[in-house]
Simulated scan of single mutants.
Amino acid sequence: MIRCFVAISIPKTVAPQILAAQAGLPAGRPVPAENLHLTLAFLGEHPEPVVEDVHHALSEIRSPCMDVQLEGLDAFGNGRVRLVCIRAVLSENLARLNASVKQAARLAGLNLPREKYVPHVTIARCGSKGASGEDALKLRDFAARKAGFRASFRAESFVLVRSYLGQSGPSYEDLAEYPLTWLQTS
């Protein structure tokens, strides 16, 4: 079984800005630079042949290169904070790419949940139970103090990523990279 997701990688030129935004994190486990990404769709765990089918479907996507705008921090979770993230602006091109990725995965046979896409880059995780009480308040305050965070980059590809779960957190392996085109959509 392969646990995987589809994402836009964070360029090495932008990662230092994101790592700086983690400074002073009052709780949770910071995400290392090599694991930073903007998720397009979490696919779950599937047998290798199914992931191959997804790969072939993703290879058919034609989408333009796009500027990705990162703006402000947020603490996700109702009551308990599950993660701290940097929000991404949901541009028309990003929304279309997300929809294309989900459609490709469904055409390959995956049953993905129909949920609203909230683009973000996770910068800290708070474990399976999340942070509560004083830690949750500190994380929400941390995110509010860093609301002015801004960064941007040009996305020229997206990737299919394998996720390995471990005691010290997940590690990732790129399985395939798919280019975005320089052509503009009409």
Rank of each mutant, 00 (worst) to 15 (best):
I2C: 10
F5K: 09
V6I: 05
I8R: 03
I10F: 04
V14I: 13
A15R: 15
A15I: 10
Q17A: 15
A21D: 05
Q22V: 04
Q22H: 12
A23M: 02
L25A: 04
A27V: 00
A27T: 00
G28P: 03
V31S: 10
P32N: 01
E34M: 10
E34L: 02
L36C: 10
L36T: 07
H37C: 10
L40S: 04
A41I: 09
F42V: 01
H46P: 04
P47A: 14
E48Y: 03
P49I: 12
P49L: 09
P49C: 09
P49G: 09
V50H: 07
V51D: 05
E52R: 15
D53G: 12
H55M: 14
H55L: 13
L58H: 03
S59G: 15
E60N: 12
E60R: 15
E60H: 04
I61T: 11
R62Y: 08
P64C: 07
P64S: 06
P64M: 07
C65I: 10
C65K: 13
M66R: 14
D67G: 14
V68S: 14
V68Y: 10
Q69R: 15
Q69L: 12
E71N: 08
E71V: 04
L73C: 14
A75H: 00
A75V: 04
A75T: 00
N78A: 13
N78I: 07
N78R: 15
R80W: 03
V84L: 01
I86Q: 08
R87G: 11
A88R: 12
V89Q: 14
E92C: 04
E92T: 06
E92D: 14
L94W: 04
A95L: 13
A95Q: 15
R96V: 05
L97A: 11
L97V: 08
N98V: 04
S100P: 00
K102A: 15
Q103P: 00
G109C: 06
L110D: 09
N111D: 15
L112W: 06
R114I: 05
E115N: 04
H120W: 09
A124D: 01
A124I: 02
A124T: 06
R125K: 12
C126W: 04
C126I: 01
S128C: 02
S128K: 15
K129S: 12
A131C: 01
S132W: 02
G133V: 02
E134W: 01
E134H: 06
A136M: 05
A136R: 00
L137V: 03
L139P: 02
D141S: 09
R145V: 01
K146T: 05
G148I: 00
F149K: 08
S152M: 11
S152K: 13
S152H: 11
F153Q: 14
A155P: 02
A155I: 10
E156G: 07
E156N: 05
L160Y: 02
R162N: 08
Y164D: 14
Q167N: 12
S168G: 12
S168R: 14
E173N: 07
D174A: 13
D174V: 14
D174E: 15
D174I: 14
L175R: 13
A176D: 05
T185H: 12
T185P: 05
S186F: 05
